[in-house]
């Protein structure tokens, strides 16, 4: 589970900062383990121009959030909405099992909600 790549992303995350001029953001948490994260997006021409995140959590949740910021860049809003757990597993190169998949997909779920709010111009 703890491949070098995951540990590296966990210890030196990419794009881990608060984006002050974000078009939208979404905060989510995993009540089981207490992982918390906020995803920020900048959207241009219906494509993710930039994604960043802030948060606190386990290596799986933080490393996958960090990897996702790179994968998401340049993807269209529609493409993001179509992503699922299988894409996350491909991205982190390990199937973390039924419990920890929730850690791994926390950032994707938050990203998708941010995108949804961007599209529909509403917040909950």
């Amino acid at each position: 589970m703890y491949a070098e790549e995951i540990i590296a992303y966990y210890e030196h995350p990419e794009n881990k900062y608060k984006m002050d001029d974000a078009d939208d953001s979404y905060s989510d948490f995993n009540p089981v383990c207490g992982d918390k994260l906020t995803v920020y997006i900048k959207v241009k021409d219906d494509k993710i121009e930039k994604m960043s995140f802030e948060g606190d959590g386990c290596a799986i949740s933080m490393a996958s959030a960090s990897m996702l910021t790179e994968v998401a860049e340049g993807k269209s809003v529609d493409e993001i909405e179509k992503m699922g757990p299988a894409d996350v597993i491909k991205m982190i190169k390990v199937d973390p099992g039924p419990v920890r998949i929730k850690c791994a997909t926390l950032s994707l779920r938050a990203l998708q909600k941010a995108v949804f709010m961007y599209k529909h111009g509403k917040r909950d």
Binding site: Y2, C33, D35, C58, A59, I60, R100, C103
Partner: peptide
């Protein structure tokens, strides 16, 4: 430096 979830996983 290690989250409890990662500890439990190991």
């Amino acid at each position: 430096g290690a989250h409890p979830h990662d500890v439990a996983q190991i």
